[in-house]
Design a protein around this nucleic acid. Structure first.
Length: 255
DNA sequence: ATGGTGGGATCCCCA
């Protein structure tokens, strides 16, 4: 079972790349973030024609998430029940017996800004939501753009980014708090020192210099991590013309 | 040097 997470930064622009990914990689589940369209504008028909189900939670201009799957998504839920939020950031469903949570965590903009306070409060609510999810489901996969660099090994210049947004200690503590609920950071299950960057800023030619960060993650419950086989970063898709600033990231679970 | 790039909106916001 291949599951992919991808911040597309506008489904309207990235739809051809998504269709190619579905055809070429034939994933079982894809979680999209930043679709940047209203739910009704999401390209359900094109995805259905490729043999997939799709559910989405969108809004005008910003944010928005979607789940695409070979098998029918069951018990679809949108948003956090414990946090009133106009921003569409969470969609979850049970697919082929796996509870899949697809998330777009707030960026936070800058440490000590209003958006940073929103990010930390939002992560508190997300923590509670995942605790409830683990209480209800055995096999849980949380995927998405977490907008958090877990450790200094996940950023091209740790000293430059020390205490900055995406790397600040409170953000890292929130990420560790999620893991402490009973999740594994899937890309680090098999010990590797590879940075495994998933995002490169459009500015200053950072992709060409490989100045990236690992901010897109999979969190696996114990039952899910027992099935972990391998991971893959689709860096070649970040290298295409007119790319998203995020690469798709995949994990493969034993069937 | 107070910028860089790209998306979506509208005459700027967000990442």
């Amino acid at each position: 079972m291949q599951l992919i997470t991808w911040n597309v930064n506008s489904i309207n622009v990235r739809q051809p790349q998504l269709e190619a990914l579905l055809k070429d990689a034939a994933p079982d589940v894809v979680g999209l973030q930043e679709i940047k369209c209203e739910t009704a504008q999401f390209p359900f028909d094109a995805i259905t024609q490729l043999g997939y189900y799709a559910v989405a939670s969108g809004q005008k201009s910003y944010n928005g998430v979607a789940l695409i799957s070979r098998d029918e998504p069951i018990d679809v839920s949108v948003g956090l029940p414990n946090y009133e939020d106009a921003q569409q950031r969470v969609i979850a469903a049970t697919i082929n017996g796996v509870r899949v949570v697809n998330v777009y965590v707030p960026n936070g903009q800058e440490v000590d800004s209003e958006k940073y306070a929103y990010k930390l409060a939002w992560l508190d609510a997300f923590h509670e939501y995942l605790a409830d999810t683990l209480a209800q489901y055995d096999t849980v996969v949380v995927m998405g753009d977490f907008n958090i660099v877990p450790t200094d090994n996940d950023v091209y210049a740790p000293e430059l980014w020390r205490d900055k947004i995406l790397c600040s200690p409170p953000e890292r503590a929130a990420f560790e708090g999620l893991l402490s609920l009973g999740f594994q950071d899937a890309l680090r299950i098999f010990a590797t020192n590879d940075p495994l960057f998933t995002w490169w800023d459009y500015r200053q030619g950072q992709f060409e210099k490989d100045e990236g960060m690992r901010i897109d993650h999979f969190l696996l419950s114990n039952a899910a991590s027992a099935r972990m086989m391998r991971a893959k970063v689709y860096k070649e898709i970040r290298a295409l013309e007119r790319p998203s600033d995020h690469a798709p990231v995949a994990i493969y679970l034993k069937d």
